[in-house]
Write a protein that binds this DNA or RNA. Structure first.
Length: 510
RNA sequence: GGGUGCGUAGCUCAAUGGUAGAGCAGUGGCCUUUUAAGCCAUUGGUUGAGAGUUCGAGCCUCUCCGCACUCACCA
C-alpha cells in the first residue's frame, strides 16, 4: 500500500505517526457533539437579542476541517457538520504554545475535529467558537480534492472544486465531502420519499415488501438479471417490477398496498438508465385508471409542495406547474396532433408502418403495432410534453396486465403521466379476469418469439391467485429517480443516485 | 454493441513533433480578528496502459482501459 501513496499522503502519515508518538490517539473511540453549527449560531443570535449572549456557557462542536487560516499566533478554521459550517478561533491565550504548535503542525484540511468553547463574534461580525479545548477525532490521510469557495451576497462562488464526473461517481464519498450541493440533492431525495410515504399512509395504504429474488420474473418488458441459489439448485431472477406480487396481496384482501424499492433491469446504462433503480408501485382495490389519475396529480403536486414549497418548479429552461388538474388527452388524439397520424385509421401493423415510412419515420417491418405506437410516442410525443400531461387509452398488445375498455377490446384503460419531456408514471385498471390474463400471457409470448429473455415465462402461480378472485383495482408505478430529477431540476439520473453503476476499472480487477 | 470527443501534479487546467507549466492544495519562513487571508521561498509528473513511426512523441499511428455525449437496445 505504502508505495501507492502520493507525497501528500506520505506527509500526512508522518503527522499521524507524530501524533501517536505524542500519545495522541488520532482515531479515538469517543466523541462529543453537544450542538451543531447552525443550532449554535441560531442560539447565539437569539441570546444576543435577549442580551444574554455572554452567559451561554460552553458548547462542543464536531466536524470536518474545511478551512484553515493560521495567522501568526492565531488560527481561524471552519468546520463543517451535517447542517453547515461554523468558524473556530484558536488563540495561544486560551490554548498555550504547545497545543497551538500541535494544531499548526499536525492538523490538516479534511481531518475530523472536536472543539469546545464559548461562542463570540469576531471583529468582522462572524459568529465563531473561541476554542478552549479541542481534539482530533479522525485524521485524514488522503487530502480532499481541493475545494475553495466563498459566499458573496448569499451566493456560493466556487474557486476550485471536484468536477470530474468519473471521480465524483467512483469516489462519491469525496464528492459528497466537498460538494455541499450534492449532499443537498440526497436530502431532497429522502424528503421526496418520505412525502410519498406520508401521502399514501394517510390514505390508508399499507407499505409492504415483496421478493427481490423471484423464480419467475414479470410485470414489465425487460431483461432480468439471473442468479442462482446453490442449496436449492434453483435459478432465480432479480425482480424487474413488483406488480405481480403486489396484486397477489389484493387477492389476499390487503386492499391498498404500496412498495418502494429497487428494480433491476439488465439493459443499457446511460444518463437515464441505471441497472438498478427505485420504483414506487401502489395498488388500490375498487379504484380504476380514472381514479388513479386524480390521485396521481394530487400525490405529485403534494410532494412538490412539501419538498419545494410550491407546485411550480424550474427544470432547465422550462417552468412547470404540477398543480392539478394536469392536461389530459387520448394517446390517439395526442399522436394525431404531434404526427398527423390517426392510429385508428391504421388498425394493423402493416398499415401503420407504411404511413410512418411515408412520413419519413423509422418503422422496421415486422414490428408489432403496439411497439410502433410506442415508438411514435417516445420519438415524437414524449419530448414535447413539458407541462404535466396524462395520455390515456393505450393499445392492448403493449399492455398485457391492463383491463380492456368495455366498448373497445383493442384498447385498455391505461394512462401514462409525462412532464419535462419524459415519462414519469404509468398506471391502469388492473386486469383481474384470470382467463383473459392467461390469454394475454400467451399472446405476449408469441410476439416475443425471437427473444427468449423478453418472452416472459408464464406465471402460473399468479394465474392461480387471480382464480381466487382479485377485486377490481387501479395500479400505479413511478420511477422515483425520475421524480427526484424533476423536483431537483437535474438532468442526469446519475446525479440523483448515490452510487451509480460504472464499469469496473483495471484497478478493481486486481 | 456503433459513432464522436476526452484522459497531463492531490484538484482545476495550459503546453507548433524540440528542456512538461500555472493557480489552488502541500512543505519551510513572517504575521494576535482572518475568512478564496496575505507576503517570501519551495517540493511535486511512468502525460490512462502498451506497442509503433521519428534524430526526437503529451502531441502522429495502432491496440487496450475508463469517462462523457450520442445512436441502438429499453412499458
Amino acid at each position: 500500500m505504502a508505495e501507492n501513496l502520493s507525497d501528500l499522503e506520505k506527509i500526512r502519515l508522518g503527522k499521524l505517526k507524530r501524533l501517536k508518538e505524542q500519545g495522541v490517539e488520532p482515531y479515538p473511540i469517543h466523541a462529543e457533539q453537544s450542538t451543531t453549527s447552525q443550532q449554535a449560531i441560531a442560539t447565539f443570535e437569539a441570546a444576543e437579542k435577549e442580551g444574554t449572549a455572554d452567559k451561554l456557557g460552553e458548547v462542543t462542536l464536531a466536524g470536518r476541517i474545511r478551512g484553515l487560516r493560521p495567522m501568526g499566533k492565531l488560527i481561524f478554521a471552519h468546520i463543517e457538520d451535517r447542517n453547515g459550517r461554523i468558524q473556530l478561533f484558536f488563540r495561544v491565550n486560551e490554548l498555550g504554545e504547545a497545543r497551538m504548535k500541535s494544531l499548526m503542525e499536525d492538523y490538516d484540511l479534511g481531518d475530523f475535529i472536536q472543539a469546545s468553547g464559548e461562542l463570540m463574534r469576531t471583529r468582522t461580525g462572524e459568529i465563531t467558537l473561541l476554542v478552549k479545548d479541542f481534539k482530533m477525532l479522525a485524521k485524514a490521510i488522503t487530502p480532499l480534492p481541493a475545494a475553495k469557495d466563498e459566499v458573496v451576497d448569499g451566493e456560493l462562488i466556487r474557486h476550485a472544486s471536484l468536477t470530474d464526473p468519473e471521480t465524483r461517481y467512483r469516489q462519491r464519498y469525496a464528492d459528497l465531502a466537498v460538494n455541499a450541493d450534492v449532499r443537498t440533492i440526497f436530502r431532497t431525495r429522502a424528503h421526496i420519499i418520505r412525502s410519498l410515504r406520508d401521502f399514501l399512509d394517510s390514505r390508508d395504504f399499507l407499505e409492504v415488501e415483496t421478493p427481490v429474488l423471484q423464480p419467475v420474473y414479470g410485470g414489465a418488458a425487460a431483461r432480468p438479471f439471473t442468479t442462482h441459489h446453490n442449496q436449492l439448485k434453483q435459478d432465480l431472477y432479480l425482480r424487474i417490477s413488483f406488480e405481480l406480487y403486489l396484486k397477489r396481496l389484493l387477492v389476499g384482501g390487503l386492499e391498498r398496498v404500496y412498495e418502494i424499492g429497487r428494480d433491476f433491469r439488465n439493459e443499457g446504462v446511460s444518463f437515464k438508465h441505471n441497472p438498478e433503480f427505485t420504483m414506487l408501485e401502489f395498488y388500490m382495490a375498487y379504484a380504476d385508471a380514472d381514479k388513479i389519475m386524480a390521485l396521481t396529480e394530487e400525490m405529485v403536486s403534494s410532494v412538490a409542495k412539501q419538498v419545494k414549497g410550491s407546485t411550480v418548479i424550474e427544470f432547465g429552461e422550462h417552468t412547470i406547474d404540477l398543480a392539478p388538474p394536469w392536461k389530459r388527452a387520448t394517446l390517439r388524439d395526442a399522436l394525431q396532433e404531434a404526427t398527423g397520424i390517426d392510429i385508428n385509421e391504421h388498425p394493423d401493423a402493416e398499415s401503420l408502418a407504411s404511413i410512418m415510412q411515408e412520413k419519413g419515420m423509422e418503422a422496421k417491418p415486422g414490428t408489432p403495432r403496439g411497439k410502433l405506437i410506442d415508438g411514435l410516442l417516445s420519438d415524437h410525443l414524449e419530448p414535447i410534453l413539458i407541462q404535466p400531461t396524462f395520455l390515456y387509452d393505450y393499445p392492448r398488445d403493449i399492455s398485457p396486465l391492463a383491463k380492456s375498455k368495455p366498448d373497445d377490446p383493442q384498447t385498455v384503460e391505461r394512462f401514462e403521466g409525462f412532464t419535462a419531456g419524459f415519462e414519469l408514471c404509468n398506471a391502469f385498471s388492473e386486469l383481474n379476469d384470470p382467463l383473459d390474463q392467461e390469454q394475454r400471457f400467451i399472446e405476449m409470448g408469441r410476439s416475443y418469439e425471437n427473444d427468449d429473455e423478453l418472452r416472459h415465462p408464464m406465471d402460473e402461480d399468479y394465474l392461480k391467485a387471480l382464480r381466487y378472485g382479485m377485486p377490481p383495482a387501479g395500479g400505479f408505478g413511478m420511477g422515483i429517480d425520475r421524480l427526484v430529477m424533476l423536483l431537483t431540476g437535474i438532468r442526469s439520473l446519475r446525479e440523483v443516485i448515490l452510487f451509480p453503476h460504472l464499469r469496473k476499472t483495471d484497478e478493481d480487477k486486481l
